[in-house]
Computed example of a mutant assay.
Amino acid sequence: MLVSGFAAIGAGSGAMLTLHAGSDLDPLHSVISEYVWQSAGWLLPASLTLFAAGAALMAEAMRRAGVNRWVVALLLVWGASMFLIGAFPTDRPGVPLSMSGGIHRYAAFVAFLVMPVAGMLLARANIRYAAAMRVLSGLALAALVMVVIPYVVRMFGIPLTNDDIPAGLTQRAVVVTELAVLTLAGLSMLKPSARRAVSPALA
Rank of each mutant, 00 (worst) to 15 (best):
A61C: 13
F6H: 08
I85W: 00
F6I: 12
G14L: 07
A40G: 14
W37M: 06
P45Q: 13
A87H: 14
V31K: 07
W78L: 05
A142M: 14
V175C: 02
I32V: 12
L139R: 03
M62F: 06
L202Y: 15
V152H: 07
V117K: 00
M120C: 14
V148M: 10
S4T: 10
L75Y: 01
A123L: 05
P200T: 02
W42Q: 10
G168P: 07
G86Q: 05
E178K: 01
A140W: 05
Q38R: 15
L190T: 15
V71K: 00
A73N: 08
L136T: 01
R92S: 14
R172A: 07
V145L: 15
R69L: 13
M58W: 01
G12Y: 00
V153T: 14
L97F: 08
G54M: 06
P27W: 04
E60V: 08
A143N: 09
L160N: 09
G66V: 08
A203E: 06
V95Q: 15
D91G: 13
L136P: 01
A143S: 13
H29I: 12
L74G: 03
D163K: 11
P200C: 04
M133I: 07
Q171C: 14
A167Q: 06
G22I: 05
A111Q: 09
D26V: 06
L184P: 03
L190W: 06
L19Q: 00
I85D: 01
L43Y: 12
V152Y: 13
V36D: 00
L57Q: 02
R195S: 00
E60Q: 15
